[in-house]
Computed example of a mutant assay.
Amino acid sequence: MTEEHLEYRNFADFASAKVADLVPGSDQTANRLSVALNRVSHLLTYDFDATVHRPEESTWAAYRVLFVIWLAGPLTPVRAAELTGMGKSAISNLLKPLLKQGYVIQEASAEDRRSKLLALTPEGTEYVNKVFPRQNELEARWAESLTSIEKDLLISLLNKLLNSPRAEEVREQRR
């Protein structure tokens, strides 16, 4: 493939071939996989933000926090960070606008009065109930190019990566 035929979609293949020339012995398949996963992740994030969340004057990141609280109930900021895959500082930064919008409240934990729990307000619940169907419709549009078997296989493979020793090491570093 020549550089004049490069596009966003085929860059992972081009990079793999180029890396093989520049760094003999490197793992081109691992490089291709990580470039492809990263690109799909960025496109998903952009699409979710642009199509669903920015029109609601919110963000994909804020929605992720609201979504885990909606499903898991009141959580400490640390637990919200773990379940969203975000850092504690990201949760802290997202919390300010969520509190200001009236979507989340902080309340003292019954077990440890020093610890704060994040809970959805009725407005936060209403927001998630309104936005989730649009979010899920967009998720379905992304997934529609795969068969049911391919979707299940991809989920299984991604979960295998999420449960790998390296993923656990990285999660530990983030704590």
Results as ranks from 00 to 15, higher is better:
Y127N: 04
R114A: 07
E57N: 15
A17S: 12
R166P: 01
V78R: 13
G124K: 05
Q28C: 12
L162Q: 12
D47V: 12
E82I: 03
L117F: 08
L146N: 05
K18L: 15
S164L: 10
A20E: 15
V104C: 08
Y46D: 08
E3K: 11
D13R: 06
G124E: 06
N31V: 15
L75I: 06
I155D: 12
R79H: 03
T29M: 07
S148M: 10
V40N: 04
R114Q: 10
A110V: 12
A80H: 00
L66R: 01
L158G: 06
E4P: 00
Y46I: 10
I105L: 08
L94H: 13
T45C: 09
A36L: 14
A50F: 09
P74M: 04
V78S: 07
H5M: 13
L117C: 03
E137K: 14
K116I: 01
T76Q: 03
E56M: 02
L33Q: 08
F11W: 06
P97L: 07
A143Q: 11
A108W: 01
P165M: 06
L71D: 10
G25T: 10
K88F: 00
V104K: 09
S156N: 14
G85D: 05
G73K: 03
E137M: 09
Y63T: 00
A30Q: 07
Q173T: 03
L6C: 04
Y8N: 09
E150K: 09
T59E: 07
K18R: 15
R141E: 14
L158Q: 11
V131P: 01
F48K: 09
S156Y: 13
P74I: 00
I155A: 12
Y127R: 10
L95P: 02
T125K: 02
E169C: 02
G73V: 02
L117V: 03
L95G: 08
I69Y: 08
S148Q: 15
P24A: 09
P165H: 07
L83N: 07
P77Q: 11
F132T: 07
H42Q: 14
E57M: 04
P74S: 09
D21R: 14
R113M: 07
F67G: 04
D47Y: 07
A50T: 10
L162R: 15
R174A: 03
V170T: 09
D21C: 09
Y46G: 01
Q106G: 06
I105C: 02
D27N: 15
K100M: 06
W70F: 12
G87C: 01
V40D: 06
